[in-house]
């Protein structure tokens, strides 16, 4: 009996083959939610290399947009990509929201892994936007932990040395030690440095404006929260060497000592 079942299965499967392969595919990192600007930017690229880009399949990466665009805006962006001559075939680099969006749009999500990392976090976009900014720089309330429990921070024990980069993907970063000149500490969440911050710190690397940077000795070269950065060619005297926190208030970086 099993023999005939196997034969039957073979017969059915003959209609189609599944093959896995790797194909290079261009990804469009959308940095402006204005469809006209997007179309114009892509048209330049298509005109420069038509043999490469005309009717080229592309994956649309929305992770650089903050806040997340709504469905209507995404439709307009996809139309802009098509109008420029490319064919959007999917969305890229999805967090849980992009995942939901891709389901609604009926488009595949390429590189789904972000959603897996994010599962425990689930901060709703409204939380990220309506930050309760303290007037004086008193510490804000801790980020609400998701239903699945808190997302554990990436811990780095020992200094981040010159030229090294530590990235806490989808999490906070805790450095027990210094961040040296020319070293980079990056996190999608907050950054805590129990030591001297002499190098660079980028919190909210995916655009979460509620993230903060904390350090016990401030001597940073550059700090950035959700892309809003400040370069310290000269350290402000009142903060140099002190314990400070840095946060974003109305898209302006604020620093205050503890």
């Amino acid at each position: 009996m099993s023999g005939s079942a196997a034969e039957c299965r073979t017969e059915i499967l003959e209609a189609a083959d599944l093959r896995f392969g790797q194909v290079g595919i261009a990804s469009v990192r959308v940095r402006s939610s204005d469809p006209a600007a997007l179309k114009a930017a892509l048209e330049v690229r298509v005109r420069e290399a038509p043999q490469l880009f005309v009717r080229a399949p592309v994956v649309v990466d929305l992770s650089f947009l903050s806040p997340h665009p709504d469905d209507e805006a995404v439709h307009a962006m996809l139309a802009a990509v098509r109008a420029a001559g490319m064919l959007p075939v999917g969305l890229a680099y999805g967090d849980s929201e992009t995942d939901a969006l891709s389901l609604r749009l009926g488009l595949p999500l390429i590189a789904k892994f972000r959603a897996a990392y994010e599962r425990a976090e689930r901060t709703s976009p409204s939380d990220a936007e309506s930050i309760a900014v303290p007037e004086t720089g008193a510490p804000a309330a801790p980020a609400p932990a998701g239903a699945d429990g808190p997302k554990v921070a990436l811990q780095q024990h020992g200094s981040v040395r010159t030229g090294q980069q530590v990235y806490a993907r989808g999490a906070d970063l805790v450095v027990v030690g210094a961040v040296a000149n020319g070293a980079e500490a990056l996190a999608d969440g907050n950054i805590h440095v129990y030591g001297a911050l002499r190098g660079r710190a980028f919190a909210g690397a995916l655009g979460d404006k509620s993230t903060r940077i904390f350090c016990s000795e401030f001597r940073a070269e550059i700090v950035s929260i959700a892309g809003h950065y400040r370069v310290f060619e000269e350290l402000p005297e009142e903060f140099a060497g002190r314990a400070v926190q840095i946060w974003l208030e109305h898209d302006k970086l604020r620093i205050a000592g503890f």
């Binding site: 040395r161 010159t162 090294q164 000149n181 020319g182």
Partner: peptide
């Protein structure tokens, strides 16, 4: 000092 810090990072990795 800066270059030495870089080297110390490499020594650790």
């Amino acid at each position: 000092v800066r270059d030495s810090d870089r080297i110390l990072g490499l020594l650790s990795s």
